[in-house]
């Protein structure tokens, strides 16, 4: 068998083990570096640029980003196989945006499937569909963000319009083994009942999707902006009260979808 794909190189900025929020069971998350969007609330700003950069963490300089082969990533992934098996967990590719490095991402997913490891992808879906198609054969679960149905507002907060994303969502819904839609709920951006209902109705229209997750806004990334010498534009906005998120959950459920708060 040709194992060349194991030598595919890509750029990551972290591998996190024992994650329990991005897909079922105990998971290892591989964070790929580089993203097409610039979401203002992004809690991993160090993920956005493809370039390797320096971030100040606890007063110390830390290099963010390193180039690794698929084989090297697999070595880390395989360490927790026993926990995946016990929990129905596996690997989730996150970012950044894996579709910015489609060959690398596809090779990791392929290697996981060779080893019988469950795979998930956390992605904006904002790329040419040919890139997405490279990944789908090796993917068990696609976790896709839909942030807004209004393209103008989408662009204002993420730097990109949403047409391509919505178009891809329809195709993925038809082609992927399983698709779950995730919505980061951001005050001042998409936290009204109408906006959430809009996303839920779109999701429902995808037919094959049964589940929608609401991810309430948090500020955990704020310090990183400082560490990168960047400005956090959402500074000072409030967190979403629990009652409100519960209300939004009801709005989603009214469309007939299952809704969960948090990943």
């Amino acid at each position: 068998m040709n194992n060349d794909y194991l030598n595919t190189t890509g750029r990551i900025f972290d591998i996190q083990r024992f994650s329990v929020h991005d897909g079922p069971g105990v998971r290892t998350i591989v964070f790929l570096k580089g993203c097409f969007l610039r979401c203002k609330w992004c809690c991993n700003p160090e993920s956005q640029n493809h370039q390797i950069e320096t971030m100040i963490v606890d007063g110390k300089e830390k290099i963010m980003g390193r180039d690794v082969t698929v084989a090297e990533v697999m070595e880390q992934i395989e360490k927790d196989r026993i926990y995946y098996r016990r929990s129905g967990g596996g690997v989730t590719l996150s970012g950044g945006e894996s579709l910015a490095q489609p060959d690398f991402a596809a090779a990791i997913l392929r290697a996981c499937k060779e080893k019988g490891i469950n795979t998930a992808l956390e992605s904006t879906g904002c790329a040419g569909y040919d890139k997405i198609q490279k990944l789908l054969p090796y993917l068990d679960l696609y976790l896709m963000d839909i942030k807004h149905t209004n393209s103008e507002k989408h662009k204002q907060f993420t730097s990109q319009p949403n047409q391509l994303i919505l178009e891809n969502a329809r195709k993925i819904a038809a082609d992927a083994k399983k698709l779950i839609i995730r919505v980061p709920v951001i005050p001042t951006f998409n936290d009204t009942e109408e906006e959430i209902r809009g996303i839920a109705e779109f999701t429902k229209s995808l037919k094959t999707v049964e589940e929608l997750h609401l991810l309430p806004y948090h500020r955990l990334g704020e310090d990183k902006y400082k560490g990168l010498g960047r400005t956090y534009e959402l500074h000072g906005i409030d967190l979403i009260p629990d009652e409100k998120i519960q209300r939004l959950k009801k709005v989603v459920e009214e469309t007939g979808l299952n809704c969960r708060i948090g990943g």
């Binding site: 329990v20 929020h21 926990y83 929990s87």
Partner: peptide, 12 residues
Amino acid sequence: EGLESFVALIRG
């Protein structure tokens, strides 16, 4: 989920 992962950790 937290409990399930916790049990998986012990089992693992």
